[in-house]
Amino acid sequence: MVIVFIFLLIAAVILISLLLCSFIYDDPDEKFDPSLFKVPLYFNGSFQLPNLAFTEELYSSENQTLAADIENKLSDLYRASPALGRYFNNTEIQGFRNGSVIVDYQLTFLMPEENQDQLRNFTLSREMVYNVFRQFLYDQEADESAPTYIDPVSLIMFLGH
């Protein structure tokens, strides 16, 4: 009986300690002032939508709907990223091209004026931004026959100006 009581006491102390730490701990990385993020960094690229055929309707209102859907998809992806979310500003679909529809896009990130070199070389490097996008594409469980399905192999990204 005493041994059971000791184990229960140890478990209670551990549980109370964990609860106190989770309420008291304040993560300094979560505190940042987005108004200090003013320096833009652009990434341009393209990807293929293999389930769409290029038609004249892509230049009409359907184009606006498709572009908005893709912009929302990419914006949600980068806003949800723990590493890149605070720096992400917006996505812009710049156009569609022939073939299976090829989408040209531009991603905009904003950096603070201090530590630009570190951010550019590590957190906001082309490899990091590209790999977040690529991992999302490989993890997507969307129907591969859906019109907005993005072919992961077709992803191209480069640092823009």
Rank of each mutant, 00 (worst) to 15 (best):
A146G: 04
M128K: 06
F23I: 06
E57M: 14
R126P: 01
F96L: 02
E127C: 04
P82D: 11
S61W: 14
L119G: 15
M157P: 00
L52Y: 05
T55W: 10
E92N: 05
N89E: 05
R120S: 13
E114K: 03
T108Q: 09
P82F: 13
N115G: 02
A80Q: 02
F23H: 12
T123Q: 08
E127Y: 14
P82C: 08
Q140Y: 14
M157L: 01
S35H: 14
I3W: 13
L41D: 01
P50M: 13
I3P: 00
N98T: 14
S125C: 10
M157H: 00
P40R: 00
F96D: 00
N63Q: 13
F47Y: 12
E71C: 10
S100Y: 06
L155N: 02
E62Y: 15
H161F: 15
F47K: 00
P34I: 08
Q106R: 08
A146N: 05
K38P: 05
F96K: 02
P147S: 09
Y105H: 09
I70P: 07
F5K: 02
Q118K: 10
T65V: 10
F136I: 07
I93S: 03
Y59Q: 11
A53V: 07
G160Q: 01
S100V: 05
F96P: 02
D117N: 07
K73E: 08
K73T: 08
R134V: 06
E56P: 02
F7M: 12
S17C: 03
S75C: 06
I16C: 13
E113H: 05
A53N: 04
D27A: 05
V129K: 02
S145K: 10
F5W: 11
F109Y: 12
L110F: 11
V39G: 03
Q116R: 08
A142F: 11
E71H: 04
E113M: 07
L20M: 12
Q94F: 11
D27E: 06
N51I: 08
N44L: 04
A142Y: 10
D139Q: 10
Y138G: 02
E141Y: 14
L41N: 03
F133R: 00
V103M: 12
G160T: 01
Y25M: 06
N90E: 13
Y105W: 11
Y130K: 04
V132K: 00
S60D: 14
M111R: 01
T108P: 02
N121P: 08
F133D: 00
F109C: 01
N90M: 11
N98K: 15
Y138L: 08
T65Q: 09
G99F: 12
L159H: 00
H161R: 07
N121V: 04
S100P: 13
K73N: 05
M128N: 01
S125M: 01
A11L: 14
E127N: 06
L107D: 00
G85N: 08
S35Y: 10
C21M: 10
D139N: 06
A146S: 13
V2H: 15
E62T: 03
F54A: 04
A11Y: 13
D76S: 03
L18D: 09
F43K: 03
E57R: 12
I70C: 09
A12P: 13
S35C: 07
F47H: 04
E127H: 10
V103D: 02
A11T: 10
L155F: 15
L107K: 00
P112R: 03
E144M: 14
L49Y: 07
F122Y: 15
P152K: 05
R120D: 06
D139F: 07
M128H: 03
R134D: 12
Q64P: 11
Q140S: 15
